[in-house]
Design a protein around this nucleic acid. Structure first.
Lengths: 225, 225
DNA sequence: TCTACAATGATAGTTATACTATCTTTTTTT
DNA sequence: AAAAAAAGATAGTATAACTATCATTGTAGA
């Protein structure tokens, strides 16, 4: 049932392209499930291999280590988000309406119809919320950044920044606002679920309406004339 | 040269209070230096013990594991921030001016005169920027939260939320804005230093003026009538 | 269809991490 | 000076994070 999407991810993110083989796709699929289940710290390649009935050595043939695998997953998510934004804003003439759609896409990504059979986007969204920032909070950011590892995210931010500029060409902080939108969406869902006193919004189950309302309010207040 | 401050931190954060002994203070002091130097992932109690000429077992008598130590350090930072905000806004009648001072305090915390001899606040600020969010991004958040581990942070957010409400009593999202101010300050300093395309501001050395300018702009746009 | 070769599996081994336990020595308290 | 608490020294265990080697299976081209 694949609709034939294959994302192009930076080649430093893997040793062998997991999108090219059955085992590779299984690694992606099962790692998403396992990281969500036990958390990134407790996650190991040995446990993953056991769960997918393969071996540790086989997993290491695809990914250098679990940190790179996390960046891969998060990058995959960002590529997917980028695709969704393009898709959802296609043929929208009104820039304000376009930006609102972007915000709702960011917040409600997991409600979109799954696009690829070996990736559970709903679970991946949870991982991005709770583990995503660990992808770049390391001592090796600069080095990894030099390899273009974060290009996907930077392009995504630029895409949203451009939409922001269409709404308000004089706005001084388009990229800051764009990155803040992503961080804010993830943080406040996390806060509402785990540390509710750090936010004013509430979420139940997978209804994130209050998050996107808040973000729309913030955004259009900032961009108003 | 201590001015006699001793912060009260949740008792679940340590096995023996590090503030009560020479060795405990040394653990705090040296762990800050070492985490900053090699990053939290590479940091181990064994390396710490070696650096401070003590033993692994001794460190384990104070902290259950390195994750709890990180929460301890970050909580210490939040306590200190709370103290600074009170101190810097004391006797300020004008609420708007008060909020501006809060923003500058959050951003420029590390420029404040060091208050306690065994904590290098400048280095600790760097740790909070690059490792701080790992304190609560774990599978055990809920459990740790039940123990009141994050009370310090929640109280700090509430304090800033109250100041926000004084500026604009009708504002719908005081706590969200407060937590966003802290997250934003740290993120954009980090971005400017490591992933500059994710922000519009620039920082050089320890001059974070552009960060506080941006945050003031965002905040007062949101709170304007 | 056979051959070559790439991919995977099975197994073992290495070094480091994350602890726990026990005993001795030093320091502090009374 | 004795008792108790803290710290040091040392050793040990389980698991993590890899690397290496060889056997087996699957597949693409001659």
């Amino acid at each position: 049932m694949s609709i034939g999407i294959k994302f192009t991810l930076n080649e430093h993110l893997f040793l062998r392209d997991p999108q090219d083989s059955k085992l590779g796709k299984k690694i992606i699929k099962e790692s998403i499930v396992l990281i969500d289940e036990i958390g990134f710290e407790a996650f190991t390649f040995k446990k993953l291999a056991k769960q997918m009935q393969s071996t540790e050595a086989s997993v290491y043939r695809y990914f250098e280590n679990k940190h790179v695998l996390l960046i891969y997953l998060v990058s995959w998510y960002w590529e997917w988000m980028s695709y969704l934004i393009d898709f959802n804003t296609m043929n929208i003439e009104d820039h304000e309406r376009g930006l609102k759609i972007v915000i709702r896409t960011i917040v409600d990504a997991s409600r979109e119809n799954p696009a690829i059979d070996y990736v559970n986007e709903t679970i991946l969204h949870r991982i991005v919320i709770s583990e995503g920032s660990k992808a770049y909070h390391t001592k090796h950011v600069d080095e990894e950044n030099k390899h273009g590892i974060f290009k996907t995210y930077k392009d995504l931010i630029q895409k949203v920044a451009n939409i922001i500029l269409k709404v308000q060409p004089n706005f001084k902080y388009p990229r800051s606002l764009a990155s803040n939108l992503f961080e804010m969406a993830n943080n406040h869902i996390f806060f509402a679920q785990h540390l509710p006193r750090l936010t004013d919004i509430e979420v139940q189950e997978d209804n994130y309406t209050e998050v996107s309302e808040m973000m729309e309010y913030f955004t259009f207040r900032l961009l108003a004339n």
